[in-house]
Amino acid sequence: MIEADLSEGDLSQVTQAIQNALRPAQQPVRMLQAPLDRTPRAQDLDFEEVDLNEDLEEESIDTAKPKPQRNSKPKVAKTPEVLDDIDVNAEPSLKDFVGRFDLKSNFDKYLVIALWFRDARGVNAITVDHVYTCFRILGWSTASTDFSKPLQNLKGEQSLRGNAKDGYSLSLTGAGKIEAKKRPE
């Protein structure tokens, strides 16, 4: 609180000055009136002759370079390698093992291959190369643009665990799904 010995008139002037100082400055709005007739008359226009052959180097034109457009083609996945160190003929052979199942989709094929590696060969983690090699040996179509995508999808639905670098292993739910497709003997 500020104490001052001011007469009553002075106090109102000080108050008014403080209020004006704290109030945001307002710029006066000026309205420009547009001419009613916007069509220029030919006699009002000044025409200037322009030499189109003038050297443009004199003028500095600052143009922003557009960003190069990215190629809209989808990225093509690397074709997996055929592995030579898989014994597909030892009991149970790959062909006999796979023949025990009623496989209707590529997902079923991926799961049965993972099951064969786990149960018949003791290999828990498989890569896309393992699956691709088995597809080639069994004569199944390998005309996929991304042979690893079903592995990623099966991981997403928790039928497989792991990743592309360390390998995928069959989960309990994945094993249950494929074992449910086993044909009665």
Rank of each mutant, 00 (worst) to 15 (best):
P68W: 03
Q69I: 14
Q16H: 07
A90L: 02
K73L: 14
L22V: 08
Q69N: 07
G167Q: 02
L94H: 04
R118W: 07
T63W: 10
V131N: 08
F147C: 08
R121N: 06
K109H: 03
P150M: 11
S159R: 08
E157A: 08
E185R: 05
Q16L: 12
N124D: 13
K78T: 14
L115Y: 02
D166H: 10
T79P: 05
N53Q: 13
Y132V: 07
Q13H: 06
A114S: 15
S141T: 15
A143Q: 14
R100Y: 00
N124A: 14
A90V: 13
K155P: 01
Q16Y: 09
P184M: 02
D119S: 13
F97R: 01
V128Y: 02
E59H: 05
K95M: 11
P35M: 04
Q33C: 02
H130T: 08
I61Q: 03
G156P: 03
K67L: 13
E3H: 09
K177R: 09
P74I: 13
T142V: 15
L56H: 06
V128A: 14
G99C: 01
I126W: 04
W140C: 11
V123M: 10
F147W: 01
D85R: 12
V123L: 07
N106V: 04
I126L: 12
V76P: 02
I113H: 00
Q152L: 12
S141Q: 07
D96K: 12
R118H: 13
L115T: 03
T39I: 14
D55P: 05
T63D: 05
W116F: 10
N124E: 15
H130V: 12
I61E: 10
N163L: 05
E59F: 14
S148Y: 00
T79E: 11
L52P: 12
L94M: 04
Y168C: 06
A4E: 09
R183Y: 01
A64L: 13
P35R: 14
F101Y: 15
D51A: 13
E54P: 00
P66K: 07
T127C: 05
R161M: 07
D62L: 14
E48M: 11
K104Y: 07
Q19R: 10
Q158S: 12
D5R: 11
G139Q: 07
K67C: 03
T173Q: 08
S93K: 04
T145M: 11
I18A: 14
D5A: 09
L111D: 01
E179K: 09
G167E: 04
P92K: 02
P80S: 02
N106A: 01
Q33N: 00
H130P: 04
N53S: 15
D10Y: 03
D102G: 00
R136S: 14
S169G: 08
A25P: 03
L52W: 09
D96Q: 15
A175H: 01
L11M: 01
A143H: 09
L172W: 00
K65I: 15
R161F: 13
